[in-house]
Amino acid sequence: MTDEPLLRVSALSKFYGSRVGCENISFDLWPGEMLAVVGESGSGKTTLLNCLSTRLLPSSGTASYRMRDGQWRELYRMSEAERRFLMRTDWGFVHQNPADGLRMTVSAGANVGERLMAVGDRHYGRIRATAVDWLSRVEIDEDRIDDEPRAFSGGMRQRLQIARNLVTGPRLVFMDEPTGGLDVSVQARLLDLLRGLVTDLGLAAIVVTHDLAVARLLSQRMMVMKDGRVVESGLTDRVLDDPRAPYTQLLVSSILQV
């Protein structure tokens, strides 16, 4: 384990006119660490995620990323070409709706293989073998490799999206409500799968969720957001077992017990 963070975020703010998207967010993320960002809809957690993943430019603040060669680069000063390259090699983005992250009209195998082809792999047999391997890692039968994701269930689509993102061995994955809209049993399977993959691959991840159970299961650290600001942050179990901020107490007390 290295002693240097992977991502350093400092005083990041995003305003939509006079409205606050997110304000003055600072944190470090280390390799292999899962950070959950929780809060209700409109709390700014998705704005934050979009800024961090450079899908959105912040109004102020900086975010630096440690590249594979050890060099620190400021995300918002990189050229678009560099950012897009980062996006499809060293990063992943798992959307809540798999249709946003998949090509629905090309086969599962091509969905997984696209990133490989994008970084220059030109050997069909090798690309396909990698796709088969990744499909099995996300528990999709090999014989579905030539089916389009349109023919997949919601849970399968989400697992395919994860495989598509992880195939290039990224070091940082952004997830926006990865289990939203899935049945509870499907959710459990996906969470377990994600946990296993993240541990095996040593990924760092930032997971936006409104579901505290998802946060507890996936993350070691969490930030609680309200009205665009971080109201509490710390170890996930500390925040959930000993919530200090009024809003966090409200959130925790609102969890339905099974």
Binding site: G234, L235, D237, R238, D241, D242, R244
Partner: peptide, 9 residues
């Protein structure tokens, strides 16, 4: 005990 484990602040 929970403070000693970092579970309580």
């Amino acid at each position: 005990l929970k403070m000693l484990y970092g579970n309580y602040a």
